[in-house]
């Protein structure tokens, strides 16, 4: 069934979009990720203009993280104070992101920046996760005890000024790295159309040493509100949020996520991380190939003014 998108101004196959939302939702439920980094490229590959894909996925991420945040709130597995600090940075980063997005779009370099960023971030995070999960699987097989978190352990980040106490996370750290982390991920999320959970979670664990039980809920909390802000910024700035597309994706996404979460409970954590690492690397590789091989068509056109601009 064809459905005309009022903002993208093209018709799409409703079931295809619904299916994509569902498939990505399934994976996001399985791995506990937002899935923006999969959905945005899928939409772009299927012919949705990149600007519409990026802006609309931010809205979809709001929906998918909203139901998860509710669950974590009930379990009291969110550090609201830490989340709020990350959020303050996130909103500032997101606003900057929309400005850059507009600029790149007018320069005609948006697509290449999106592709390069995907290659860089997905490649780096994917490799890290891959190595880490392989080690974890080996450790499990050889039976070596996993190193526990040592509360006294410090790195350079813990030496920064403007310290603040986060009770739930059992942390006493400077707000500077928290604001910077929030801003950085808000910025990338807005430009790339991703929630950034797959970057936020490792950063909170390895840099700030937030306890693992709190990390996912807090990260989701920050993503929910940063992406809400990004949606509003995109609606005002780039005006490319397509409500019809977003709604179709959301409905597919939230249904898929429920099934994914159920399947995920039957898999081991390290196996899940290995699968996710391979998935992340796969998407990164797809972008790398596009950048490196000779394009089918060297030319492209973009409307800069008038109908459809």
């Amino acid at each position: 069934m064809q459905l005309y998108l009022p903002i993208a101004e093209i018709p799409v196959n409703m079931f295809l979009i619904f299916g994509m939302g569902g498939a990505v939702g399934f994976l996001s439920g399985l791995f506990g990720i937002g899935g923006g980094f999969l959905l945005t490229p899928l939409l772009i590959f299927s012919g949705i203009p990149p600007a519409v894909a990026v802006a609309t996925v931010t809205t979809q991420v709001v929906a998918s993280s909203a139901s998860a945040v509710m669950t974590y709130l009930r379990r009291k597995a969110i550090d609201l104070k830490l989340g709020t600090m990350l959020l303050i940075g996130g909103i500032a980063g997101s606003a900057l992101g929309v400005l850059l997005f507009d600029l790149l779009q007018s320069l005609g370099q948006l697509d290449v920046v999106i592709s390069l960023s995907y290659v860089t971030f997905l490649g780096a995070i994917g490799t890290l996760m891959f190595v880490e999960s392989i080690r974890a699987i080996r450790r499990r097989k050889t039976g070596v005890a996993v190193r526990a978190r040592r509360p006294g352990q410090h790195n350079w980040i813990h030496g920064l000024p403007l310290k603040m106490r986060f009770r739930r996370s059992k942390l006493y750290v400077s707000v500077i790295p928290i604001l910077v982390l929030g801003a950085g991920i808000g910025f990338l999320g807005t430009v790339l159309g991703i929630g950034g959970g797959f970057m936020m979670v490792p950063a909170l664990i390895y840099l700030l040493r937030v306890p693992t039980g709190i990390v996912i809920g807090t990260s989701l909390f920050q993503i929910l509100f940063t992406m809400s802000a990004a949606t509003v910024f995109h609606a005002i700035g780039t005006q490319t949020v397509d409500l019809v597309l977003a709604l179709t994706l959301m409905i597919g996404g939230v249904i898929g996520a429920q099934f994914g979460a159920r399947v995920g409970q039957n898999l081991r954590g390290d196996q899940l991380r290995l699968l996710l690492a391979l998935l992340v690397l796969g998407v990164g590789l797809r972008f790398a190939i596009d950048l490196l091989i000779v394009p089918d068509d060297l030319y492209s056109i973009a409307i800069t003014m008038g109908a459809g601009a």
């Binding site: 709001v62 929906a63 998918s64 909203a66 509710m70 609606a235 409500l243 977003a246 959301m250 939230v254």
Partner: peptide, 16 residues
């Protein structure tokens, strides 16, 4: 933009 966010939160909440 606000309507889009509301709609998304509502969908997420409803699914939950």
């Amino acid at each position: 933009g606000i309507v889009a966010v509301m709609l998304a939160m509502f969908t997420g909440w409803l699914a939950g």
